[in-house]
Design a protein around this nucleic acid. Sequence first.
DNA 1: TATATCAATGTTATATCATAATCCAGTAAA
DNA 2: TTTACTGGATTATGATATAACATTGATATA
Lengths: 148, 148
Amino acid sequence: MAHDNIDLSTLTKNELLVFEALKESEGPMKAYDVLDVLKSHGVRAPMTVYRALEGLEEKGIVHKLDALNAFVLCSHDHPHQVQSFLVCSECGMVQEISPELREAPQVEDKILGVVRATGFQMREARLEMKGICQNCTSKQGAHSTAAE
Amino acid sequence: MAHDNIDLSTLTKNELLVFEALKESEGPMKAYDVLDVLKSHGVRAPMTVYRALEGLEEKGIVHKLDALNAFVLCSHDHPHQVQSFLVCSECGMVQEISPELREAPQVEDKILGVVRATGFQMREARLEMKGICQNCTSKQGAHSTAAE
DNA sequence: TATATCAATGTTATATCATAATCCAGTAAA
DNA sequence: TTTACTGGATTATGATATAACATTGATATA
Ligand SMILES: [Zn+2]
Ligand SMILES: [Zn+2]
Ligand SMILES: [Zn+2]
Ligand SMILES: [Zn+2]
Protein backbone atom coordinates (compact mmCIF):
# COMPACT_ATOMS: atom_id res chain seq x y z
CA MET A 1 0.00 0.00 0.00
CA ALA A 2 1.13 3.54 -0.52
CA HIS A 3 2.81 4.40 2.74
CA ASP A 4 0.75 7.49 3.43
CA ASN A 5 -2.59 5.86 2.76
CA ILE A 6 -2.68 3.32 5.58
CA ASP A 7 -4.99 3.21 8.55
CA LEU A 8 -2.35 2.99 11.23
CA SER A 9 -5.00 2.50 13.89
CA THR A 10 -5.44 -1.11 12.84
CA LEU A 11 -1.82 -1.89 13.68
CA THR A 12 -0.61 -3.25 16.98
CA LYS A 13 2.17 -1.47 18.78
CA ASN A 14 4.88 -3.74 17.40
CA GLU A 15 3.44 -3.71 13.91
CA LEU A 16 3.63 0.04 14.01
CA LEU A 17 7.24 -0.04 15.13
CA VAL A 18 8.18 -2.43 12.32
CA PHE A 19 6.24 -0.35 9.82
CA GLU A 20 8.14 2.77 10.83
CA ALA A 21 11.46 0.96 10.57
CA LEU A 22 10.66 -0.24 7.05
CA LYS A 23 9.47 3.21 6.06
CA GLU A 24 12.72 4.74 7.23
CA SER A 25 14.85 2.19 5.43
CA GLU A 26 13.57 2.97 1.93
CA GLY A 27 14.46 -0.55 0.90
CA PRO A 28 14.13 -4.18 1.92
CA MET A 29 15.14 -5.16 5.43
CA LYS A 30 16.04 -8.49 6.92
CA ALA A 31 14.14 -9.50 10.02
CA TYR A 32 17.22 -9.23 12.18
CA ASP A 33 18.00 -5.78 10.79
CA VAL A 34 14.54 -4.71 11.88
CA LEU A 35 15.28 -6.22 15.26
CA ASP A 36 18.43 -4.13 15.56
CA VAL A 37 16.46 -0.97 14.89
CA LEU A 38 13.74 -1.92 17.34
CA LYS A 39 16.18 -2.66 20.13
CA SER A 40 16.20 1.03 20.91
CA HIS A 41 12.48 0.68 21.53
CA GLY A 42 12.88 -2.18 23.95
CA VAL A 43 12.26 -5.07 21.55
CA ARG A 44 14.69 -7.89 22.28
CA ALA A 45 13.53 -11.10 20.61
CA PRO A 46 13.26 -12.21 16.96
CA MET A 47 9.79 -13.59 17.63
CA THR A 48 8.45 -10.13 18.24
CA VAL A 49 9.66 -8.96 14.86
CA TYR A 50 8.47 -12.03 12.97
CA ARG A 51 5.03 -11.79 14.54
CA ALA A 52 4.71 -8.15 13.59
CA LEU A 53 5.92 -8.85 10.05
CA GLU A 54 3.38 -11.64 9.72
CA GLY A 55 0.62 -9.32 10.81
CA LEU A 56 1.70 -6.66 8.36
CA GLU A 57 1.85 -9.22 5.56
CA GLU A 58 -1.68 -10.36 6.30
CA LYS A 59 -2.84 -6.77 6.17
CA GLY A 60 -1.17 -6.38 2.76
CA ILE A 61 1.15 -3.69 4.03
CA VAL A 62 4.36 -5.69 3.76
CA HIS A 63 5.63 -8.24 1.25
CA LYS A 64 8.32 -10.80 1.79
CA LEU A 65 10.97 -11.26 -0.85
CA ASP A 66 11.66 -14.96 -0.61
CA ALA A 67 14.80 -14.82 -2.71
CA LEU A 68 16.35 -12.37 -0.26
CA ASN A 69 14.77 -13.34 3.04
CA ALA A 70 13.83 -9.70 3.28
CA PHE A 71 10.75 -7.56 3.72
CA VAL A 72 9.51 -4.40 2.00
CA LEU A 73 6.56 -2.09 2.32
CA CYS A 74 4.01 -2.55 -0.44
CA SER A 75 4.04 0.39 -2.80
CA HIS A 76 0.45 0.00 -3.98
CA ASP A 77 -2.79 1.65 -3.06
CA HIS A 78 -4.75 -1.56 -2.86
CA PRO A 79 -4.21 -5.16 -1.83
CA HIS A 80 -3.29 -7.42 -4.73
CA GLN A 81 -2.85 -11.08 -5.51
CA VAL A 82 0.15 -10.86 -7.79
CA GLN A 83 3.28 -9.15 -6.56
CA SER A 84 6.13 -8.37 -8.95
CA PHE A 85 9.59 -7.20 -8.06
CA LEU A 86 12.75 -6.17 -9.81
CA VAL A 87 15.81 -7.10 -7.79
CA CYS A 88 19.22 -5.75 -8.76
CA SER A 89 21.99 -8.27 -8.22
CA GLU A 90 24.53 -5.45 -8.21
CA CYS A 91 23.28 -2.87 -5.72
CA GLY A 92 20.43 -4.70 -4.02
CA MET A 93 17.80 -2.28 -5.23
CA VAL A 94 14.26 -3.63 -5.09
CA GLN A 95 11.33 -2.14 -6.95
CA GLU A 96 7.76 -3.37 -6.83
CA ILE A 97 6.39 -3.06 -10.34
CA SER A 98 2.98 -4.65 -10.41
CA PRO A 99 1.36 -1.31 -11.29
CA GLU A 100 3.24 -1.24 -14.57
CA LEU A 101 2.20 -4.80 -15.32
CA ARG A 102 -1.38 -3.85 -14.55
CA GLU A 103 -1.23 -1.31 -17.32
CA ALA A 104 -0.70 -4.33 -19.52
CA PRO A 105 -3.67 -6.19 -18.09
CA GLN A 106 -3.35 -9.06 -20.52
CA VAL A 107 -0.44 -10.30 -18.49
CA GLU A 108 -2.10 -10.86 -15.16
CA ASP A 109 -5.30 -12.04 -16.85
CA LYS A 110 -3.46 -14.47 -19.07
CA ILE A 111 -1.47 -15.89 -16.21
CA LEU A 112 -4.60 -16.32 -14.14
CA GLY A 113 -6.42 -17.85 -17.10
CA VAL A 114 -3.74 -20.38 -17.86
CA VAL A 115 -3.48 -21.32 -14.23
CA ARG A 116 -7.22 -21.65 -13.74
CA ALA A 117 -7.37 -23.92 -16.77
CA THR A 118 -5.22 -26.39 -14.89
CA GLY A 119 -7.76 -26.44 -12.07
CA PHE A 120 -5.49 -24.61 -9.69
CA GLN A 121 -7.08 -22.11 -7.33
CA MET A 122 -4.51 -19.40 -6.93
CA ARG A 123 -4.41 -17.46 -3.69
CA GLU A 124 -1.25 -15.46 -4.12
CA ALA A 125 1.65 -15.14 -6.50
CA ARG A 126 5.04 -13.52 -6.49
CA LEU A 127 7.23 -12.75 -9.47
CA GLU A 128 10.82 -12.00 -8.55
CA MET A 129 13.01 -10.82 -11.40
CA LYS A 130 16.76 -10.68 -10.91
CA GLY A 131 19.07 -8.63 -13.08
CA ILE A 132 20.92 -5.34 -13.30
CA CYS A 133 19.08 -2.09 -12.72
CA GLN A 134 19.32 0.90 -14.99
CA ASN A 135 21.39 2.80 -12.49
CA CYS A 136 24.05 0.08 -12.22
CA THR A 137 24.06 -0.49 -15.98
CA SER A 138 24.83 3.14 -16.75
CA LYS A 139 27.61 3.17 -14.17
CA GLN A 140 29.18 0.03 -15.64
CA GLY A 141 29.19 0.76 -19.35
CA ALA A 142 30.41 4.31 -18.72
CA HIS A 143 32.53 4.43 -21.90
CA SER A 144 29.86 4.93 -24.54
CA THR A 145 26.61 6.45 -23.45
CA ALA A 146 24.54 6.38 -26.61
CA ALA A 147 25.69 3.87 -29.19
CA GLU A 148 27.51 0.57 -28.90
CA MET B 1 15.11 -30.15 -18.44
CA ALA B 2 13.25 -33.32 -19.14
CA HIS B 3 14.93 -35.85 -16.88
CA ASP B 4 15.74 -38.32 -19.61
CA ASN B 5 17.23 -35.79 -21.97
CA ILE B 6 20.26 -34.72 -19.95
CA ASP B 7 23.89 -35.29 -20.74
CA LEU B 8 24.87 -36.88 -17.45
CA SER B 9 28.51 -36.90 -18.48
CA THR B 10 28.75 -33.19 -17.75
CA LEU B 11 27.84 -33.74 -14.10
CA THR B 12 30.33 -34.20 -11.32
CA LYS B 13 30.03 -37.18 -9.01
CA ASN B 14 28.13 -35.26 -6.34
CA GLU B 15 25.92 -33.51 -8.85
CA LEU B 16 24.97 -36.90 -10.21
CA LEU B 17 24.13 -38.18 -6.74
CA VAL B 18 21.92 -35.17 -6.03
CA PHE B 19 20.30 -35.48 -9.44
CA GLU B 20 19.42 -39.10 -8.77
CA ALA B 21 18.01 -38.23 -5.36
CA LEU B 22 15.78 -35.54 -6.84
CA LYS B 23 14.70 -37.85 -9.63
CA GLU B 24 13.66 -40.49 -7.14
CA SER B 25 11.73 -38.05 -5.00
CA GLU B 26 9.29 -36.97 -7.73
CA GLY B 27 8.88 -33.69 -5.92
CA PRO B 28 10.78 -30.84 -4.27
CA MET B 29 13.41 -31.70 -1.69
CA LYS B 30 15.05 -29.63 1.01
CA ALA B 31 18.82 -29.56 0.99
CA TYR B 32 19.02 -31.45 4.26
CA ASP B 33 16.61 -34.09 2.95
CA VAL B 34 18.97 -34.60 0.05
CA LEU B 35 21.78 -34.86 2.55
CA ASP B 36 19.94 -37.61 4.40
CA VAL B 37 19.58 -39.59 1.22
CA LEU B 38 23.20 -39.09 0.27
CA LYS B 39 24.52 -40.19 3.65
CA SER B 40 24.21 -43.75 2.44
CA HIS B 41 26.68 -42.77 -0.28
CA GLY B 42 29.18 -41.36 2.14
CA VAL B 43 28.23 -37.70 1.93
CA ARG B 44 28.40 -36.11 5.37
CA ALA B 45 28.36 -32.33 5.08
CA PRO B 46 25.73 -29.80 3.97
CA MET B 47 28.35 -28.00 1.88
CA THR B 48 28.63 -30.97 -0.42
CA VAL B 49 24.93 -30.88 -1.14
CA TYR B 50 24.72 -27.11 -1.54
CA ARG B 51 27.67 -27.11 -3.93
CA ALA B 52 26.12 -29.82 -6.06
CA LEU B 53 22.76 -28.05 -6.09
CA GLU B 54 24.44 -24.83 -7.16
CA GLY B 55 26.15 -26.63 -10.02
CA LEU B 56 22.90 -28.21 -11.13
CA GLU B 57 21.15 -24.85 -10.99
CA GLU B 58 23.82 -23.27 -13.16
CA LYS B 59 23.39 -26.07 -15.67
CA GLY B 60 19.64 -25.41 -15.71
CA ILE B 61 18.84 -28.87 -14.43
CA VAL B 62 17.53 -27.81 -11.04
CA HIS B 63 15.45 -24.85 -9.86
CA LYS B 64 15.21 -23.53 -6.35
CA LEU B 65 11.80 -22.71 -4.94
CA ASP B 66 12.58 -19.77 -2.71
CA ALA B 67 9.23 -19.81 -0.99
CA LEU B 68 9.87 -23.37 0.17
CA ASN B 69 13.64 -23.46 0.51
CA ALA B 70 13.43 -26.51 -1.70
CA PHE B 71 14.80 -27.76 -4.98
CA VAL B 72 13.19 -29.50 -7.96
CA LEU B 73 14.33 -30.90 -11.26
CA CYS B 74 13.43 -28.71 -14.20
CA SER B 75 10.71 -30.29 -16.29
CA HIS B 76 11.62 -28.57 -19.54
CA ASP B 77 13.58 -29.58 -22.58
CA HIS B 78 15.53 -26.37 -22.80
CA PRO B 79 17.05 -23.81 -20.46
CA HIS B 80 14.78 -20.84 -19.82
CA GLN B 81 14.88 -17.43 -18.18
CA VAL B 82 11.42 -17.41 -16.66
CA GLN B 83 10.41 -20.19 -14.33
CA SER B 84 6.82 -20.60 -13.19
CA PHE B 85 5.52 -22.87 -10.49
CA LEU B 86 2.23 -23.85 -8.96
CA VAL B 87 2.61 -24.69 -5.28
CA CYS B 88 -0.26 -26.32 -3.41
CA SER B 89 -0.55 -25.07 0.15
CA GLU B 90 -2.53 -28.17 1.05
CA CYS B 91 -0.51 -31.15 -0.17
CA GLY B 92 2.79 -29.54 -1.10
CA MET B 93 2.51 -30.46 -4.75
CA VAL B 94 4.74 -28.44 -7.04
CA GLN B 95 4.28 -28.20 -10.78
CA GLU B 96 6.49 -26.26 -13.15
CA ILE B 97 4.18 -24.70 -15.72
CA SER B 98 6.27 -22.45 -17.90
CA PRO B 99 5.51 -24.58 -20.96
CA GLU B 100 1.84 -23.72 -20.66
CA LEU B 101 2.67 -20.06 -20.30
CA ARG B 102 4.85 -20.29 -23.39
CA GLU B 103 1.81 -21.36 -25.33
CA ALA B 104 0.52 -17.93 -24.43
CA PRO B 105 3.67 -16.18 -25.60
CA GLN B 106 2.25 -12.73 -24.99
CA VAL B 107 2.79 -13.29 -21.32
CA GLU B 108 6.52 -13.76 -21.24
CA ASP B 109 7.03 -11.21 -24.01
CA LYS B 110 4.89 -8.64 -22.28
CA ILE B 111 6.63 -9.10 -18.98
CA LEU B 112 10.02 -8.81 -20.62
CA GLY B 113 8.88 -5.76 -22.57
CA VAL B 114 7.53 -3.92 -19.56
CA VAL B 115 10.64 -4.69 -17.58
CA ARG B 116 13.01 -3.65 -20.34
CA ALA B 117 11.15 -0.37 -20.65
CA THR B 118 12.26 0.46 -17.12
CA GLY B 119 15.88 -0.05 -18.14
CA PHE B 120 16.24 -3.23 -16.15
CA GLN B 121 18.36 -6.00 -17.64
CA MET B 122 16.67 -9.17 -16.53
CA ARG B 123 18.79 -12.26 -16.06
CA GLU B 124 16.32 -14.62 -14.48
CA ALA B 125 12.80 -14.60 -13.12
CA ARG B 126 10.71 -16.88 -10.98
CA LEU B 127 6.95 -16.85 -10.60
CA GLU B 128 5.74 -18.81 -7.61
CA MET B 129 1.98 -19.20 -7.34
CA LYS B 130 0.45 -20.49 -4.13
CA GLY B 131 -3.01 -21.94 -3.91
CA ILE B 132 -4.95 -25.18 -3.86
CA CYS B 133 -4.36 -27.77 -6.55
CA GLN B 134 -7.13 -29.48 -8.48
CA ASN B 135 -6.58 -32.71 -6.64
CA CYS B 136 -7.03 -31.16 -3.21
CA THR B 137 -9.98 -29.07 -4.37
CA SER B 138 -11.91 -32.09 -5.59
CA LYS B 139 -11.20 -33.93 -2.35
CA GLN B 140 -12.45 -31.00 -0.27
CA GLY B 141 -15.69 -30.11 -2.05
CA ALA B 142 -16.56 -33.78 -2.38
CA HIS B 143 -20.31 -33.15 -2.19
CA SER B 144 -21.00 -32.07 -5.77
CA THR B 145 -18.71 -33.40 -8.48
CA ALA B 146 -20.03 -31.77 -11.63
CA ALA B 147 -22.12 -28.67 -11.03
CA GLU B 148 -22.02 -26.11 -8.27
C1' DT C 1 60.35 -37.54 -12.94
C1' DA C 2 59.37 -33.66 -10.28
C1' DT C 3 56.37 -30.05 -9.52
C1' DA C 4 53.03 -26.60 -10.50
C1' DT C 5 48.22 -26.01 -11.25
C1' DC C 6 43.38 -26.41 -11.01
C1' DA C 7 38.86 -28.24 -10.10
C1' DA C 8 36.31 -31.02 -7.20
C1' DT C 9 35.72 -32.61 -2.81
C1' DG C 10 36.16 -33.08 2.22
C1' DT C 11 36.01 -31.08 6.91
C1' DT C 12 35.18 -28.08 10.68
C1' DA C 13 33.15 -24.41 12.43
C1' DT C 14 29.98 -20.80 12.34
C1' DA C 15 26.56 -17.54 10.54
C1' DT C 16 21.92 -16.61 9.41
C1' DC C 17 17.02 -17.24 9.42
C1' DA C 18 12.85 -18.87 11.76
C1' DT C 19 9.78 -21.20 15.11
C1' DA C 20 8.28 -24.03 19.32
C1' DA C 21 6.95 -23.78 23.82
C1' DT C 22 5.97 -21.53 27.81
C1' DC C 23 4.96 -17.84 30.73
C1' DC C 24 3.12 -13.21 31.75
C1' DA C 25 0.40 -8.77 31.59
C1' DG C 26 -3.61 -6.24 30.48
C1' DT C 27 -8.49 -6.22 29.95
C1' DA C 28 -13.12 -7.38 29.47
C1' DA C 29 -16.90 -10.16 30.85
C1' DA C 30 -19.32 -13.03 34.47
C1' DT D 1 -12.49 -11.47 42.28
C1' DT D 2 -12.27 -15.05 39.23
C1' DT D 3 -12.22 -16.45 34.48
C1' DA D 4 -11.02 -16.30 29.89
C1' DC D 5 -8.82 -14.23 26.16
C1' DT D 6 -5.33 -11.64 23.47
C1' DG D 7 -1.07 -9.99 22.45
C1' DG D 8 3.44 -9.92 23.91
C1' DA D 9 7.98 -11.45 26.20
C1' DT D 10 11.38 -15.00 27.07
C1' DT D 11 14.03 -18.93 26.46
C1' DA D 12 15.53 -22.34 23.90
C1' DT D 13 16.13 -24.73 19.81
C1' DG D 14 15.53 -25.97 15.00
C1' DA D 15 16.40 -25.24 10.12
C1' DT D 16 18.91 -23.23 6.45
C1' DA D 17 23.24 -21.69 4.47
C1' DT D 18 28.11 -20.26 4.06
C1' DA D 19 33.14 -19.21 5.42
C1' DA D 20 37.53 -20.88 5.64
C1' DC D 21 40.79 -24.04 5.03
C1' DA D 22 42.72 -28.85 3.99
C1' DT D 23 43.00 -32.71 0.77
C1' DT D 24 42.82 -35.27 -3.34
C1' DG D 25 43.47 -36.46 -8.03
C1' DA D 26 43.98 -35.36 -12.66
C1' DT D 27 46.60 -32.76 -16.08
C1' DA D 28 50.19 -30.01 -17.85
C1' DT D 29 54.89 -28.98 -18.50
C1' DA D 30 59.74 -28.03 -17.29
ZN1 LIG E 1 2.34 -4.66 -3.11
ZN1 LIG F 1 21.56 -1.75 -9.22
ZN1 LIG G 1 12.59 -25.34 -15.69
ZN1 LIG H 1 -2.84 -30.21 -3.34
